[in-house]
Design a binder for these strands. Structure first.
Lengths: 117, 117
DNA sequence: TCAATTGTTCAATAATCTTTGAACTAAGGG
DNA sequence: CCCTTAGTTCAAAGATTATTGAACAATTGA
């Protein structure tokens, strides 16, 4: 099973901006960015400190639909990654400046638990 | 008379993003960016092709309150400028990448009329 | 002073977006 | 198989946002 994602050239700037204008979603992206290059993708439950399961499902769908994240279905889990290359190609510098700016605000530092995957 | 503007360090990233997530406001910023360095500031009526007078008043207030634009009151007119230096200082690279991205979408090319001020 | 120009405010409506709980699906593990 | 885990879907409620027209205020030019 594979979820719908916009192609790179379908990624819309106003949509990306409004999606990242929500503090919960911005925090999710900041957390994903910290993790980049690291070994592990993150599954949804890693973000439970930011909202209820249902609410996260909603916000993570928004991020995926806007083309900000990629969601991989593995069993009953969904693994999330930032679509950095696609975003960098389409809107050079945007993600970096947003992530840097998001760090200015306090992004909760997920309790580091065991790495999975 | 002078209108309230946030100080540079009061400018909030999520607020800037959600304010620029609106297509009308993004178009206004793109138009202001084109005009930068030019001699003339723009008054509100220059944007009438993007919405009604009342509606523009609403959107322009949002841009000002978020710290994206500066509004100078001169007589009955309001002259708008991008707060580029403040934004560049607080969120380096953000404005440039957004303006560049906005140009990808079709930003209406204001009918060039007589320069005032 | 009168009238036009520029733009705001207000209140109402419409449209979107967010949050929630209950019920559900789909894998796994034992 | 049954039970747990991981996450979605749905519908309802709540909260914000956007759009509109009517009325208003302030400045400016004739």
């Amino acid at each position: 099973m594979t979820l719908p994602h916009p192609t790179t050239d379908q990624i819309s700037l106003p949509l990306v901006l409004s999606v990242l204008g929500d503090p919960t979603r911005l925090a999710i992206v900041a957390l994903l960015a910290r993790r980049e290059g690291g070994k592990g993708r993150m599954n949804c439950s890693r973000f439970l400190s930011l909202g209820s399961k249902t609410n996260l499902s909603y916000h993570l769908a928004k991020l995926r639909e806007a083309g900000v994240t990629r969601t991989e279905v593995v069993g009953t889990q969904r693994f999330l990654t930032l679509r950095r290359e696609d975003l960098d190609q389409r809107f050079p510098g945007l993600l970096d400046s947003i992530v840097a700016g998001a760090e200015l605000a306090a992004i909760p530092r997920l309790e580091e638990s065991v790495e999975m995957a």
